[in-house]
């Protein structure tokens, strides 16, 4: 192999698709077959023609490629993959994108986001579910008591029912309904918000 000159520059793309060369040596063919095997289809496109030309005129080149072909034959004996299982196909298809569902979800997400924004403005202390629930319960309680009590019940009358009247601004103003609503609201966890 004396006097061997590499037919390509290591830095160029001579092994790729773009550049073809007519030069080929046994040493380079040994490298190609040693890396890509005996099938010219797998050889670098840019050197394939030159390698096949050398193969046609050199018994030594053919011996090199035949040796690579023996390893190829062994590699071809490796077990092939089984066919995809029906379960795998089902799992993949079950996870596929669904346009309609996606639109509904994004619409719902936008609506939820709008309500959440409003709730955050009204109640910036975390989840708005608690004060909203407490408010609703208070109102219902007030309405319930209001309906159950006879008209004309005053703050004094509440004492006889075991309910301590609340000292609030609305307590001094008049009707039993107002007093009860005030009482109910004053039971809130944050009474300072309601006593102002």
């Amino acid at each position: 192999m004396s006097g061997y000159v590499k037919p390509w520059n290591m830095a160029n793309e001579g092994r790729g698709e773009a550049m073809a060369t007519d030069e080929m040596t046994l040493e380079r063919l040994a490298e190609i077959a040693g890396a890509y095997g005996a099938s010219p289809d797998l050889w670098p496109a840019g050197e394939r023609q030159a390698a096949q030309s050398l193969l046609a005129r050199s018994a030594e080149a053919r011996a090199l490629v035949q040796e690579a072909g023996e390893l190829d034959s062994l590699l071809a004996m490796a077990p092939a993959a089984d066919a995809p299982s029906p379960e795998l196909l089902s799992r993949i298809m079950a996870a596929r994108p669904r346009a309609a569902t996606g639109r509904i979800l994004s619409h719902q997400a936008r609506r939820a986001s709008l309500w959440q924004s409003i709730a955050r403005i009204v109640w910036p202390y975390g989840s708005a579910a608690f004060p909203a629930g407490a408010l609703a319960a208070s109102i219902m309680l007030g309405i319930g008591f209001g309906a159950a009590l006879p008209s004309g019940v005053t703050a004094e009358g509440l004492s006889s029912l075991g309910l301590a009247p609340v000292q609030s601004a609305s307590a001094s103003t008049g009707t039993a309904g107002e007093q009860l609503v005030s009482f109910a609201l004053a039971e809130n966890e944050y009474p300072e918000d309601w006593k102002k």
């Binding site: 890509y36 590699l75 490796a78």
Partner: peptide
């Protein structure tokens, strides 16, 4: 390259 048949 060998099994999937892709180019270098």
């Amino acid at each position: 390259t060998h099994y999937q048949g892709l180019s270098n």
